[in-house]
Structures are given as C-alpha cells and as structure tokens.
Design a protein around this nucleic acid. Structure first.
Lengths: 320, 320
DNA sequence: GTGAAAGCGCTAACAT
DNA sequence: ATGTTAGCGCTTTCAC
C-alpha cells in the first residue's frame, strides 16, 4: 500500500494537471473495454425504453453502451438481413466491446453465425426474440402468460366466440401469443378464429384481415391483437362497418405502447415492461463479463400485466 | 505500394485466420477513436428520432455513438444538474471520443465548464438548446419562424384575441417561441395574453393555467402551446368547461410528437424535423473532427413546417 | 517495396 | 513501499 499522505498528494497533482486516464489504453491492456455493444434501435416506445433500461444499469456499473443497429433494409431477403446483422455485431467486436445486447432480426440464425463472439468469449444477450439455434442468453416477455391473461379477461367478460389477429408465426413471440391464446379460449369451451397479419404495421393489410375476421360466422364478439400497433387498423375497420367498440366488438392488444391509452376508446392491453427487459439484459451481460453466471444460457421471461381500459366490455350488454 | 498479388494473399490469410483489427489499439495510436459521445436521452419521440438521425450519419462515416446521458435528477438544483452534466461529458472524454453531441440541461452553462473539451480539441455540438456562453456548434429549430407560422395560421383563420401557454422563459427555445408569436400577433393588430407554464408536462399545472387563460376577458379564441405536450391538459380544461375544440377554441402546438395526430381532435402543430437535427449535428461534429469547418461556432436552425389538423378552425364559425 | 524499431498510454510482473 | 521493465496491438518512421 501507498501511504495515505502520498496518495492524497498524487491525486491532488493529478487533478491540478487535469489528468484523466485513457480508457482505451487501459482496455487494450486489461482486455476489458467497459463498453457493451448495444444493437437495439431506439425507435418508438419499445426500443427507446429498452435502451433506457440498458443504459441505467450499465452506467451504475461503470460501463457505457456503444450503439449500432442494422439500418432497416426494405429488401426483405432474410439472408441479406442476417448478414447485415452479422456485420453490425462484428463492427461492435472491432471496438472490443465486452459484451453484446442484440435485438435480433429473426429467430432463425444459426449458432455459427456468431462464431466470432464465441471465439472471443464475448457474451451475447438477445432481447425480445429468442434465437432457437444459438447458445445465447435471452430476456423477453412471458408471451404465453400474457396471451392467457388476455384470453381469461375476455372469457371473464363472457366472450366465447372470439378471434385473433396474429403476428407472423415465424417469430416465436407471435407464435407463443397466438398459441396460448387459442389454447386458453378452447379449453374454456370457446371458439377462436385466427388470422395472421402478413406484414406488421401495414394499415391496409390490417383492415383487410379485420374485415375477414368480422365476416366469419358467428361473428366474433372480441378480438385479440398480437400487437397494439394493429389497433388503429382494427378500429378503422370496425368503424367503417358501423361497429362500436366495445359495445359491438371488444378489442385487446399486447405491448401497451404509449399510443394505446390515447386511442378512442383507450385500448385494453397486456403491458410488457420493456425498460425492465433492458435492465435485466444489461445485468446479465455484465454478470457474464465478470465470469459469474457460467453454464447454460439463461432464458428470462418477464411477467406482463393486464391493463384494463375501455376497449373491452362484457358481452351481456346488448347483442347476442 | 505493395504488389497487388501480395495484397490479395495477405488479405485472404487474414480473413481465414479471422483477423480483425483492434480499433482501440488503432485509436490509441492515431488519436482518433472513431467514437462520438452522444449525450441525448433517447426518450420519447424527440430523443429517439434525434439519436436515430445521429446514428444514421455516423455509421456511414464509419463512426459509432457512445451513449451516455445524465440520469434525471428530481432535485431541481441547477448547480447539481450542471455538474452531473459535466461528469457525463468527462466520462465520455475518458473513452477518448472524437467529438460530443449534447442535449444540454439548460442554456446557461459557462464556457469554462467545458474547458476539458477545449483543452483536448474535442468538438462539441449542442442540439435543441443553444448555450449562450459557450463556443460550441448548435443545431436546432428556427423557433421564431415556427412561432410566426403558428401566429400567421391563427391570424389567417380570423383570430385576433389569442393566448399562449409558454414554456419556461429560461430556455431560449421557449423564449423565442413566445416572443415571436406575440410579436407577430401584435403587429397584425391582435392581442395576446401570455402565461408561463411552471414545470413542463405537469398535467395539473397545465389545466390550472389554461383555466386562467380562459378566464381572461375577452376570452381568447385560440391558444398557442409552447409544446405539444401541453395539449392533453388544455383539451381537458376546455372539455371541463364545455368548450369544444376547435369550435370554441382553436389550439395549435409545437413539435409534432407522435401523439399529436392521435388526439381528439388531431392537433394542428408546427413540426420540427428532429431526425434531421440529429443528422446535421452528426455531420457537423464529423466535419470538425476532420479539421474542416474551422472558425466561428456554427449555429444551425432548421426550418419547421406547419401541419394543419383539426384543432384549429376559422373564427367565423359561430361565436363572437 | 519491405522489414525493423520506436512509441502511443496504460497495467502487470517483476525487482529493489 | 517504490521503481523498473515488458508488453498489449497497432501506426509511423526510418533504414534497407
């Protein structure tokens, strides 16, 4: 140990000279950059809050997020998208990040895709999408539980003939929601017609599918949406044929985006705590960096919460 | 020059071995980390889009944003907040970022606050808030022009007795909006009563001030909001006294947040292109890094755009 | 054109 | 307890 007096004096001089350690130089030596690569586009409610959660945890642990995400590629060729994603991860690696938090483009990348990460011993945590074939940690939402919440809410209101507008089944997230919802409805003796929404967030597509849903006989008294985003389209389609929400049709979403509460009527939905997902992901990646949390990939699914608003109502009111 | 054949062979071997240059090591040598420190919280519509714009430009120029913002401090002591901000900038500096993009906490920091940046020759670009006493580049919105746009819109609709709910005048942004709005109204022969909103985004405070505005005689037929955020409160206050928008009161905002279009009625507002602000800021900081763009601090104010929706209407309809 | 050597700012492993 | 040295992975300079 150095003597206390010396220590103080040195520190004083250092400050007077305006000395600041060069973390790059330190990183090169210690092999720890204290930088975490974050490939989560801070777009919309979802990504923003995730990034905030990540930042919050990293900062208190003396780390910083280096942001880099795939620039959206209209050519929906999955192979191109994947290789773009790989390029992003590798770029992050070039900066010698200690770990990577990734919101993957899809669920079906192969493990060897991330060979470079493994070779370097850099931990990978994916958020929201769980990679099937990759040995990586994962933090997301308990989609099955959330869908069950939605189904039970509808059942409790007396709905038996229901429908759902599902997301692309190629994403585990949407498959889980759809599956668990249908199962819950069925096992309570209800019927559920499921339609898949081709590409998310296309208003026209949503309206088209909603119309098909509303044409099925008997007409469903409630509809579960794979994502809040779809609500505007569903509301529009319902309004177009003079159906009132929730009197003629109950609608329940998933996510609880900021705009859900602003819709007319405000949307009942299943709330994901996105910020918490970010926090847990950061936590995990940090723990892996410290060499704790060894062994099998961790799969964390945070419990969502039912937020009842005005877009769902008891079936007894009026019709049927 | 190396011979072409050798070059190709070397590169091939490098790839086979999975060689990736260590950018940290390179940075330490060249003095360029190719990292830009970004202190813009990606929160809400505003920060998110700004960060996206920044990212977009940085990436194509082979740079990456290192994110680090001040964690919001409820103790509104300006001195504490400033020193927290300084700490953030210094932390960024420790990573040897090539430049800094900052969304400042307030407009009144002194130049010596950023001494460390100057000493190191690290360029600073502030967004949205222009630091009065600091020799830094700035990219923001032409607030005066935007406010004039709003005023002229109202005037064109026939409004002469108008009001505004202004933001805290300690921010240049809000002072400019308020001032230019009032001036435009006045010089057209109208009258304008101005009330300052104590702390932004407090619903109760907004409602209270709106009530005061609506109590003034003659009652204003239109109100200009320093920020879209205030709209919910104003709408609520108007509804509470049975006033219909826009029939009894026209409302115009500033920003064009995503929720503006979702309000009932949809909010007429002045749109800032936040993403473009981010892009220009990144552009500027990059140029400074290259040593171009020498000399006086650049002050860029992007031209906003009037978005007419349903919350404003001609005064001729009905009253007065 | 190519190889060797110095050095960037630091840490870690040694001596003293 | 303190001082010295080697070396992290790169770029730059200067011989060859």
């Amino acid at each position: 140990m150095v003597s206390e007096e010396r220590r103080v004096r040195i520190l004083a001089v250092a400050k007077r000279l305006g000395y600041r350690p060069n973390l790059m130089a330190r990183a090169i030596q210690t092999g720890r950059s204290h930088i975490i690569g974050v490939s989560v586009p801070p777009i919309g409610d979802f990504g923003s809050r995730m990034v905030c959660g990540i930042h919050e945890v990293l900062v208190v642990s003396d780390h910083l997020p280096l942001l880099h995400w795939r620039t959206p590629d209209p050519s929906a060729d999955p192979e191109r998208i994947r290789s773009a994603e790989l390029a992003v991860v590798n770029a992050l690696l070039d900066y010698r990040v200690d770990g990577v938090i990734l919101f993957p483009a899809d669920d079906w990348v192969l493990d060897l895709h991330f060979r470079e990460l493994h070779r370097r011993g850099v931990p990978l945590v994916t958020v929201d999408r769980q990679l099937q074939q990759v040995a990586a940690d994962f933090v997301g939402t308990d989609d099955r539980y959330g869908a069950r919440l939605a189904a039970e809410h509808l059942l409790a209101l007396g709905h038996r003939q229901v429908a759902q507008l599902a997301g692309a089944m190629s994403y585990g997230t949407y498959a889980d929601r759809s599956d668990a919802f249908e199962e819950t409805i069925r096992s309570a003796g209800g019927t559920c017609v499921t339609l898949e929404k081709p590409a998310l967030s296309e208003l026209a597509g949503t309206i088209f599918q909603t119309n098909r849903l509303l044409d099925s006989r008997p007409r469903p008294s409630a509809v579960f949406l794979a994502h809040d985003h779809l609500a505007s389209g569903v509301f529009a389609a319902a309004a177009a044929r003079g159906l009132q929400i929730p009197r003629d049709l109950s609608v329940i979403g998933f996510a609880d985006l900021a705009h859900a509460a602003l819709l007319h009527p405000p949307l009942t939905t299943v709330r994901q705590d996105t910020e918490a997902i970010g926090r847990r992901a950061a936590d995990l990646v940090l723990r892996r960096c410290l060499g704790q949390e060894i062994g099998e990939p961790v799969r964390l699914r945070l419990v969502p919460e039912l937020i009842v608003r005005a877009s769902t109502a008891s079936i007894s009111q009026g019709r049927e």
